[in-house]
């Protein structure tokens, strides 16, 4: 791990973002709209006062972070290919994975803006305020969830390098998280056979941990193991994602050096 490179990539992504910040919109629009629609549906069903809505708001925040992460990671490699900066990066002794890691951290960090946006709209449109029962637990959980998203971003970015059609993967991966993470409706509502898919997404555990910390008396089959089980699962999944990313990136670097498709767009 090359901390200096990761920091530099974080800063590069940040500077680039701040130079043209409206580009955040395409990446956050879908999760934002989906959350607002879900809230309309719950309020139409007369559920506005129930904790369901509060969980949906929290879940929407996580989706927002996911959306930004997914699009930015997908685009980050495409951008370098298009821009011709892939080659200069490959020329340096730094591994590509460190550069992408730094950017993923920035992307998730910016995704928090989206989460806040969801919270504000929930307050303005539906009058649903976000109150946090246990802030001391909530914020570490938030950080951990962010970190888990960054690690998925890293793994996805690797897949994006391998394909020209990163747009395809982005499109295909955007929605499963909406459905399977339990963000806007509990995963217990899903057909039993589909639930294992939820368990391999770290954000599922993050959403659960956040809800447990924010809402007193929150209870799902997942939370009944206790919040520390969520933490454990996130740790495990993050480790899996990072190890997988490492191997993917090693393969990518090798592939690129063998086939020379690096510069082609």
């Amino acid at each position: 791990m090359n901390v200096k490179a990761i920091t530099a990539a974080f800063r590069q992504q940040g500077t680039q973002f701040l130079a043209d910040p409206q580009w955040i919109i395409p990446s956050i629009i879908a999760p934002f709209m989906f959350t607002v629609v879900a809230l309309y549906m719950y309020s139409g069903a007369g559920e506005l006062d129930s904790p369901i809505v509060l969980t949906a708001v929290l879940g929407g925040g996580v989706l927002g972070m996911w959306g930004n992460m997914l699009f930015s990671s997908g685009f980050t490699i495409t951008y370098d290919r298009y821009n011709g900066t892939m080659e200069p990066i490959m020329l340096t002794p730094t591994h590509l994975i460190d550069v992408i890691a730094g950017r993923s951290v920035w992307n998730v960090f910016i995704g928090m803006i989206n989460a806040v946006l969801v919270f504000i709209s929930a307050q303005l449109i539906f009058g649903v305020g976000v109150s946090v029962a246990d802030p001391l637990l909530f914020f570490p959980m938030l950080l951990m969830t962010l970190f888990s998203l960054a690690s998925i971003g890293l793994m996805l970015a690797a897949l994006f390098v391998l394909t020209r059609a990163s747009y395809v993967i982005t499109t295909i991966l955007e929605f499963p998280i909406y459905v399977f993470s339990g963000a806007l409706f509990p995963i217990t509502a899903l057909p039993e056979a589909l639930r294992p898919i939820s368990y391999i997404f770290a954000p599922t555990w993050g959403v659960d941990a956040l809800k447990t910390a924010a809402i007193s008396g929150y209870n799902t089959p997942m939370a009944s193991f206790g919040i520390w089980f969520d933490v454990l699962m996130m740790f495990l999944l993050i480790a899996v994602y990072i190890i997988a990313s490492y191997f993917l990136f090693m393969r990518i670097e090798r592939n690129i050096r063998e086939s020379g498709t690096l510069a082609r767009y």
């Binding site: 500077t15 680039q16 130079a19 011709g84 080659e87 200069p88």
Partner: peptide, 14 residues
């Protein structure tokens, strides 16, 4: 190090 000719290869928003 290597210099490739052309317009590309720099971060143009930086």
């Amino acid at each position: 190090n290597l210099v490739s000719g052309g317009e590309r290869g720099l971060y143009y928003r930086l």
